[in-house]
């Protein structure tokens, strides 16, 4: 039997990516392009959408060429329905609707957060972990239970990646390849730990207060030579990552799961991985993490997750192929996981 093949479009934030995958998780092509703003600036919806408009079609061509797959061989066309920024999401949605009609292939709408989880599972082989999903737009501790990915803890204000990105703007660090990467490198040179607020509230975390605190005190401290930019990066990372490890550990105890999978853009931070690995080993569990190819938004994760849904009979009629800024992880019925459960029980 011919292998099932899907093409996936991701454009919910500042990356636009097109991936082509098979059902066993083999990635045939996964090109992407990142909208990088000047130091001190974030990315805004309209400018980001224009970036995506310029790059999406060359990426489709490149993905088809690299994979040596023809449109006829593709079984379904997947796209990110949400969550994310509206205008950038629309770019993928429009291209997918046109291609679906030109190629006469069905559409599958995909939840961005679920796609991160499924990509992480297939790449690392983690079977049933507690998932820490950390990126510029999301911070959630998730575990699968009875058909859905349930959120056990999350941020009550801004995402951890947003906190790091915005602090990078204060220091005017480069956004290339990403602000978080540059904070991580600078943090390695930090020597003094500066006390910052620590904001864990039950199963949830809060980052906006920490950001305000460090934004207002950084300039003064740097001017008086009380600390270096490296010290601040180091202290911020240690503080926010400790918070994340704490709520992840609590979710593990609650769900009685041993392993942790970290996904999302902040997930490629090696300091976060180290701290989480220490915690897991103390609980006789394992840490599963991936590098920037899979952690950071990409088209393949959308293609793969869409394909899982497609082979379980899920398709999105074109008139329903909308996009939405808010789309919670637990709204998705993960039918493919139920099939896995049946196989295991049977």
């Amino acid at each position: 039997m011919k292998k099932k093949i899907a093409i996936g479009f991701e454009g919910s934030a500042n990356k636009i990516g097109v991936g082509i995958v098979t059902l066993d998780g083999t990635i045939l092509a996964n090109p992407r392009h990142t909208y990088i703003t000047p130091p001190g600036h974030g990315f805004l919806p309209r400018e980001t959408a224009h970036h995506h408009l310029d790059h999406v079609l060359p990426l489709v061509k490149s993905a088809l060429e690299t994979s040596q797959v023809t449109p006829e061989e593709i079984d379904c066309i997947c796209y990110t329905k949400g969550p994310g920024m509206g205008a950038p999401l629309q770019v993928s949605a429009i291209v997918v609707r046109v291609l679906s009609q030109l190629w006469k292939k069905p559409i599958v709408a995909v939840n961005h957060c679920v796609a991160h989880i499924e990509m992480g599972r297939v790449v690392t082989g983690a079977d049933d972990p507690v998932v820490l999903y950390v990126s510029g737009g999301n911070t959630q501790v998730i575990a699968y239970s009875e058909g859905r990915y349930r959120i056990f803890g999350e941020t009550i204000d801004i995402a951890v990646g947003n906190c790091l990105d915005r602090f990078a703007r204060v220091l005017k660090l480069s956004n290339d390849p990403s602000p978080g990467y540059n904070i991580e490198q600078l943090a390695k040179k930090g020597e003094n730990f500066i006390d910052l607020p620590y904001a864990v509230k039950g199963m949830d975390v809060s980052f906006s207060g920490i950001l305000s605190y460090i934004e207002t005190t950084a300039e003064e401290k740097l001017k008086n030579n009380e600390c270096t930019p490296a010290d601040l990066c180091y202290s911020l990372q240690e503080t926010v990552f400790a918070m994340l490890v704490e709520i992840t550990e609590r979710a593990m105890a609650h769900c009685d799961k041993k392993d942790v999978l970290i996904v999302g853009g902040v997930g490629c931070n090696e300091r976060l991985q180290d701290m989480m690995r220490t915690m897991c080993s103390e609980r006789d569990g394992k840490l599963f993490a991936t590098d920037d190819r899979y952690c950071i938004d990409n088209g393949a994760m959308i293609a793969y997750t869409g394909l899982l849904a497609f082979v379980n009979g899920i398709e999105t009629p074109i008139q329903d192929s909308t996009f939405t800024q808010r789309f919670r992880t637990d709204e998705v019925h993960a039918v493919w996981r139920e099939k896995e459960d049946l196989v295991l029980e049977g």
């Binding site: 408009l53 629309q90 429009i94 291209v95 046109v98 030109l102």
Partner: peptide, 15 residues
């Protein structure tokens, strides 16, 4: 006009 241009380009490129 932005999304119309995108749809038109997609049709031209892959149609």
């Amino acid at each position: 006009v932005d999304v119309l241009t995108l749809a038109t380009k997609t049709i031209q490129e892959f149609g």
